[in-house]
Every structure is written in structure tokens, then in C-alpha cells.
């Protein structure tokens, strides 16, 4: 049981990396990976938000939307699962807003570090993607927590590594058309290959 969860954790970080294997969260990955400190800040914000929203969306889905989920309210024949997109995006936006208010109130240091990134995150596809994958893969509640955090850590590793590589790339003498975005994509491809080597790893 614990071994399975650990496998899921490792898989969501490496072989099933949400960015490098499923292409989620590319927009902010490309835009923010120019600087290591901002990459770390955004990375932590993503871990935080993914780790919280995925389990909340699990509860929302299994107690409100899934076929037969409304049995507790006496509506056993209801299937509202088609509403999942709209509900998930609303939950994510609300949670991000709430987190922002809470850390603003209790920790100004953390707010200074993460504050600017939080609004950006509501439209990060990785957050919505993790929730949708959680539904599609029929995960249990515990699995959704592990998967949320694992995916966040995987995304953070990818963006921080990319930021470190891009600092070195600044001194590379690339051809005009390749410099910048093209090179970033190719390096991401090479990184994805490296991460894929971990597939099939079990404990």
C-alpha cells in the first residue's frame, strides 16, 4: 500500500512528469524560466496549489458530480460529471484567492515570495490537468493527495532545472533563428528524454 503510493509519487515526479510527459503548464514554464529565483518561487507556488486543489477537487467530484454521488442528498440517479470543467476551474480560482488572502494575513515574507505568482496560477494548465487526470485515472483520495504533490514537485524540478540551463545558454552562440524559444524547446525535449529514463522504476 505505502509502496504503491511511493511508486505513484516517483512516477508523477519523473516518468509521468506533468510538464515533460504531458505538456502541461508550458506557457508559464517558457515565460518564467529565465531567472532561477522566480522559477523557484513559482515552483513552490505550484506545489502548494496542486497539493491543495487536487484533493479538494477529488472531494468535489466524488461527493457532488460523479454518477450516484448525490445519494447522500437523496438524488441517487444524478450524474453531473459533465460539470467537472466548470466546477474545477471555479474551485481552483477560489482556492488560489483564499491562499493568497491567508498568506497575506499570516506571513508577509511568504507573501512577498509567492504573492505575484498566485494569480498567474489559476490559468496554469497543470493545475486543471492534474485534477482531470485524477478523475480519469480513478484515483482514491489518498492517491490524489500524493499525485497532487508529486506532480507539483515534478513541475518545480523541471522549471528550476530549465532556468539553470538557460543561464548557461545565454553564453551559447546559437544561430539567429534558433536562439531563444527554439533552443528552449529543444533543450526541453532533451530534458524530457532524461526524465523518461526513470520509467518503469518501482520500489
Amino acid at each position: 500500500m505505502v509502496g504503491d503510493l511511493f511508486d505513484l509519487f516517483l512516477n508523477s515526479i519523473f516518468a509521468g512528469n506533468i510538464l515533460l510527459a504531458y505538456f502541461l503548464g508550458m506557457c508559464s514554464f517558457v515565460a518564467i524560466s529565465k531567472n532561477i529565483n522566480t522559477a523557484i518561487g513559482l515552483g513552490f507556488a505550484v506545489v502548494f496549489v496542486l497539493g491543495i486543489t487536487t484533493p479538494i477537487n477529488w472531494l468535489m467530484y466524488h461527493y457532488l458530480l460523479a454518477p450516484g454521488a448525490l445519494t447522500w442528498a437523496g438524488l441517487s440517479g444524478m450524474d453531473l460529471s459533465f460539470l467537472k470543467f466548470i466546477l474545477f476551474i471555479a474551485v481552483i480560482a477560489a482556492v488560489v484567492q483564499a491562499i493568497e488572502m491567508v498568506i497575506d494575513r499570516f506571513s508577509s515574507a511568504l507573501y512577498a515570495a509567492l504573492g505575484v505568482f498566485l494569480p498567474l496560477i489559476s490559468v496554469n494548465c497543470a493545475i486543471l490537468g492534474a485534477s482531470l487526470f485524477m478523475v480519469e485515472r480513478n484515483q482514491s483520495f489518498i492517491e490524489s493527495i500524493v499525485y497532487g504533490f508529486g506532480s507539483g514537485i515534478g513541475w518545480m524540478m523541471a522549471i528550476v532545472t530549465m532556468a539553470a540551463i538557460r543561464i548557461k545558454l545565454r553564453y551559447a552562440d546559437a544561430p539567429y533563428g534558433l536562439a531563444g524559444y527554439g533552443l528552449t524547446m529543444i533543450v526541453t525535449g532533451l530534458m524530457a528524454m532524461a526524465f523518461m529514463l526513470f520509467s518503469g522504476m518501482t520500489v
Binding site: 505538456f23 534558433l178 527554439g182 524547446m185 529543444i186 525535449g189 532533451l190 524530457a192 528524454m193 523518461m196
Partner: peptide, 11 residues
């Protein structure tokens, strides 16, 4: 595999 897509986009 996934990496090929990144590399094609880069090219």
C-alpha cells in the same frame, strides 16, 4: 514519445 514533440516544435 513526448520529447520528439518538443524537438519538432523547436525546429
Amino acid at each position: 514519445l513526448a520529447p520528439a514533440a518538443f524537438i519538432i516544435i523547436g525546429l
